[in-house]
Every structure is written in structure tokens, then in C-alpha cells.
């Protein structure tokens, strides 16, 4: 038990990322407001990005930028790969968000509401 708590405290950034993920997940599935769903989607994506970037962090590490001078011995660099991957991930998340928002604009035009429950009601009445 103590060990679990200790490792949680030690790796608190993983814990925070997972909490954010669950918040996003829950909001996305339970809220009926479409805009809130998109916001939750972004929270969820961001939490994964945070987790990913923290994996690459080395305690006391420097940004992995090489200058002409050879680095002094004993200096650690952080892992640049997760950060580079997450740049791609952010671009992907932006394009999905843009597409989702444009769909919401269209949905509002057709139904006059952005609430999923009301939309279901309108569709139920039509059938």
C-alpha cells in the first residue's frame, strides 16, 4: 500500500495525465452538448500528449540542441522523440477539432440546436 502511494507521489505527472484522460472520457460520453463533447475530446487528447512528453523527460536534462561546442561530460539531454511525435499529434488533434466544429455548425443549421438529446427528440418525432 505504502509502496503504491509512494510511487504515485513520485510519478505524480503520470497520475495527473490519467486523471485528465478520465475527465475527458467521461465528459465526452455523458454530456449531451456537442461543443462540450469537442472540448472533452481536446482535454483527452491533451492528457495523452502530456503523458507522452513526460515519458521523454530526464530529471535535470537539457533540451537536446547541439551547439558547436562539445557538451561537457555528465550532462543529460531529454529524449526529443516524444516531443517530435506529439507535434504531429497536435496537428492531428487540431484537424479533427476543426472538422468536428464545422460539423456542429452544419448540425445547428439543420436542427436549430446543438444538444444531442434534443436532436434525438426531433428525429424521434419525425419517425
Amino acid at each position: 500500500m505504502m509502496e503504491t502511494i509512494e510511487s504515485l507521489l513520485h510519478n505524480y505527472y503520470y497520475f495527473i495525465a490519467v486523471v485528465l484522460f478520465v475527465i475527458g472520457f467521461h465528459t465526452m460520453l455523458t454530456h449531451s452538448n456537442l461543443i462540450k463533447k469537442v472540448i472533452a475530446m481536446n482535454i483527452m487528447d491533451t492528457s495523452v500528449f502530456l503523458l507522452f512528453v513526460t515519458i521523454g523527460y530526464v530529471q535535470g536534462g537539457r533540451p537536446p540542441i547541439m551547439d558547436a561546442v562539445t557538451p561537457p561530460a555528465g550532462v543529460d539531454y531529454i529524449n526529443p522523440l516524444p516531443s517530435a511525435l506529439i507535434l504531429t499529434g497536435i496537428i492531428v488533434a487540431i484537424s479533427v477539432t476543426a472538422y468536428a466544429l464545422s460539423l456542429i455548425v452544419k448540425i445547428y443549421k439543420f436542427y436549430g440546436t446543438i444538444d444531442a438529446d434534443e436532436i434525438a427528440e426531433i428525429r424521434g418525432r419525425e419517425e
Binding site: 484522460f21 472520457f25 465526452m28 460520453l29 487528447d45 495523452v48
Partner: peptide, 20 residues
Amino acid sequence: LEASFKYLILSAMGTGCYLL
């Protein structure tokens, strides 16, 4: 439009799980 939005949200959920 509605079907496509539902698909997009659930598929974004799947993507989130995949990336995690």
C-alpha cells in the same frame, strides 16, 4: 451530419485510447 458527428466522437475516443 448527426451520424457522422457521432462516428467522429467515438472514433476520437478510440484514437485517444490507442495513443495512450
